[in-house]
Every structure is written in C-alpha cells, then in structure tokens.
C-alpha cells in the first residue's frame, strides 16, 4: 500500500495522518507599534542623510532644523498667533460653508424641484478651483477677513451639498414609507428619519470638507494676511526659509490630524447606533 502524501506532521504506521494547517494569513491585524517604528525610522534616516551631507540643506532641511524652526516660533510667540488666525478662518469658513451646504444639500435631497434646479448648478460650479476665484472674492469681500472666510466657505460648500444629498438618497426608502404609514407629518419625517439617516454620509463629507478647509487656508491667506499658517508658509517660501516652510507644512498636517481625531470622536458619539 503506498504511503499517503502527508505534509507537515509525519505519517503514522497505521496510515492515519494529522491534517496540516493551511489557513490563516491575508487578514490585516492591527499592529500598534509598526506605524510608530516606521515613523521613527523615516525621520531617523532623513536626519542621518542630512548629517552625512547626502541631503544638502539648501534643498532639504533636516528634521532637526524643522524642530528648530518650531522652537523659534514658540519662542517668539508667533506660533499661537499664526495658529489662532488660521483656526478662526478655518472654523468660520467651514461653519458658513457647512451650514449653507447642508441647507442646500438637504433641500436637494428632499425636494425634487430643488434637486432639478440645484444639481446642474452645483455640478457646474463644484470643479472650479476656488483659487481662480480669489481675485473676484477680493473685489466682492475686500482683502480683510471676509474674503478669506469666503474662500474657505465656498470650497467647503459644494462638497457638503453633494455629500448631503447623496446621503439623503442613501436613507432606506422603507423607513420613509414607515414614517408615512404612521402618519408622521412631512417635517417630522425629515427631522426624525431623513436627517439622522443621512448622518453617516454627512459626517463622511465633513472629513473631506475639513481637509479642503485646511488646504484652502493657504490660498486664502495669500492675500493680505499678516498672520496665519498659510501666510507663514507663503512668506517662508518667499524668503527661501525651507526649514520654516516645512515647519508650517508640518503644522498644517498636525492640525489635519487633530481635526480628524475630533471628527472621529464625533462620529463615534453620533453614530453610536451603527
């Protein structure tokens, strides 16, 4: 009798065999340390390359120099002024854009007339780079805060509209039919069924619009801003202070990380039911 083809555990005299395990793998597991190690490794390699002179600091400042630029900002007290100025612009612009965007987006999600009228307008205006409209915003809103808030607000508005009305579409129709069958008035169906049902989509939209607001703050602060992270980055660019430029960019990405953490927490609370 021929031996059975057995891999892994050895065959036994009576012909029985243990079945070799062949499952497992292909299933991403959380590895808490890995991102941290990768981060440290990349920064370390970068710093080492700068020390060894492989990266001339004319073209790429070392991490240590960027930290130094941060230190200077902290020391001179300009850091809080820059962050404060940008945050207030981002917050105001985002709030205006989101409020208006939700109003229009929900209207488009609920009313056929609003959708028929709004969709072509939104589709036509959404892809326009808001930076191209900067001169117009300056004519309309001046070179003070309003034009900066408006630039961010406009950038946030359109994605919010689209997120809101597609989120309305994703609310199961049977829930609306259920509301009707229980005699709920239309406004109650909107506030108790459509809006909470659209919340996951709307919150996902918030993540996108928060990033857009951060991106646009640099453009918004091109014009007439004394303080602000964007103004700081631009002036560092003008002055060829590459270490400060990267410090500013780092500041923006830290801000992005903070915003995303906050939004994550909001999602966990608001969408507890998922």
């Amino acid at each position: 009798m021929p031996e059975p083809d057995v891999r892994g555990a050895g065959g036994v005299a009576d012909g029985s065999a243990t079945i070799a395990f062949r499952g497992g793998g292909f299933q991403p597991q959380p590895r808490r340390l890995v991102p941290f190690i990768v981060f440290v490794l990349v920064i370390g390699l970068w710093q080492a390359a700068s020390w060894r002179g492989w990266l001339p600091d004319l073209f790429m400042p070392s991490p240590w120099q960027i930290v130094g630029a941060f230190g200077d900002m902290l020391h001179s007290g300009t850091l809080t002024r820059h962050v404060g100025a940008s945050l207030s612009r981002i917050a105001l612009g985002w709030l205006f854009g989101t409020t208006a965007g939700l109003a229009v987006g929900l209207a488009m999600g609920i009313f056929s007339v609003a959708r028929a009228g709004g969709l072509p307008v939104v589709s036509a205006l959404f892809p326009i780079p808001k930076i191209a409209l900067l001169p117009l915003f300056i004519l309309w809103f001046g070179i003070g805060e309003p034009s900066k808030v408006a630039t961010i607000g406009f950038g946030v508005f359109f994605p919010t509209v689209i997120a809101a009305y597609t989120a309305c579409d994703s609310v199961p129709r049977n829930l609306i039919r259920m509301g009707q069958s229980f005699g709920l008035p239309a406004h109650a169906i909107v506030w108790k069924i459509v809006v909470p049902g659209a919340m996951p989509g709307i919150l996902a939209g918030f993540r996108i619009t928060a990033s857009i607001a951060l991106i646009l703050v640099v453009a918004a602060e091109m014009i007439g801003a004394e303080y602000g992270i964007g103004a700081f980055i631009l002036s560092a660019g003008n002055l060829m202070q590459t270490d400060q430029l990267l410090a500013g960019v780092t500041l923006l990405s830290l801000l992005g990380l903070a915003v995303s953490t906050v939004l994550g927490a909001v999602e966990r609370i608001v969408l507890r039911w998922r």
Partner: peptide, 21 residues
C-alpha cells in the same frame, strides 16, 4: 504699519484703487 502682502503689483494696484489700503 499694517502690511498687507498681496502677491503681485496688479493686486497692489487693485487694492489701492478699491481703497482697501
């Protein structure tokens, strides 16, 4: 003095014209 960096000569001229500075 409050400085308003406006990026280009054209913008500076426009701001002057619009009495924004």
């Amino acid at each position: 003095v409050t400085l308003k960096p406006l990026q280009s000569i054209a913008n500076v001229t426009a701001a002057l014209k619009g009495e924004q500075v």
